[in-house]
């Protein structure tokens, strides 16, 4: 009981979250961030550095860092590990051939000491593409225990709320002792957002 109240006390003041969004190149990170922010996504070049977007969700402020995923610049990811509350790992669910690369890069990230306190959200992107792997399969391939990974079925369409709710819920559920698996249904996410407003 003591633990929970401490958590709540800290969390009350802790309304700003730093979210690091990484994944292989072409997985859709920039598209997602721009969509979330309601910006034009018709011309997006592969990211050479990074973008930062701030979105407000209920009483939370999410600072989202979108970092380029080309092989040459993956080594820069570590520049952003410090102070990260939530890690969003974006997967192109239609890129079957690079799933192994994808897993290897994620495994490397999760070994990072500096990320050990951060929550993990695995985003199975491009679900609209025929032939894409289902979120459940992506989770299995990532080798993630359902209890720590949260999956979001997503096709980049009007996802601001969904994303913010998912992210907040992920960070929140790490703080809260029972990290419940949430399997990509909007209903579950609404449940979480209801929890968070109270």
């Amino acid at each position: 009981m003591g633990l929970l109240s401490i958590i709540r006390k800290i969390k009350k003041k802790e309304k700003e979250m730093r979210i690091l969004m990484v994944g292989l190149d072409n997985s859709g990170k920039t598209t997602i961030v721009l969509k979330i922010n309601g910006e034009d996504t018709s011309v997006i070049s592969p990211t050479l550095g990074f973008n930062i977007k701030t979105i407000a969700y209920q009483k939370y402020t999410l600072n989202i860092w979108d970092v380029g995923g080309q092989k040459t610049i993956r080594s820069y990811w570590r520049n952003y590990f410090e102070q990260t509350d939530g890690l969003v790992w974006v997967v192109d669910s239609s890129d079957l051939r690079r799933l192994d690369d994808c897993k290897m890069e994620l495994d490397n990230l999760l070994k990072e000491e500096r990320l050990s306190g951060a929550s993990l959200l695995i985003l199975a992107n491009k679900q609209d593409i025929k032939g894409a792997l289902a979120p459940e399969e992506i989770a299995k391939n990532s080798g993630q225990q359902a209890a720590t990974a949260l999956l979001l079925r997503c096709d980049c369409a009007s996802m601001t709320l969904l994303f913010a709710a998912a992210m907040t819920a992920t960070v929140y559920s790490t703080l809260h002792a029972n990290s419940v698996a949430v399997m990509g249904s909007a209903a579950t996410l609404h449940h979480y957002s209801a929890l968070l407003t109270t």
Binding site: I6, I7, I10, K11, E14, S116, G117, A118, S119, Q145, A147, T148, T174, L175, A177, S179
Partner: peptide, 15 residues
């Protein structure tokens, strides 16, 4: 669960 506990504590610590 144990791994989660650990993660959880390290997050608290950091916060």
């Amino acid at each position: 669960e144990a791994a989660l506990q650990k993660k959880h504590l390290s997050m608290l610590d950091r916060l």
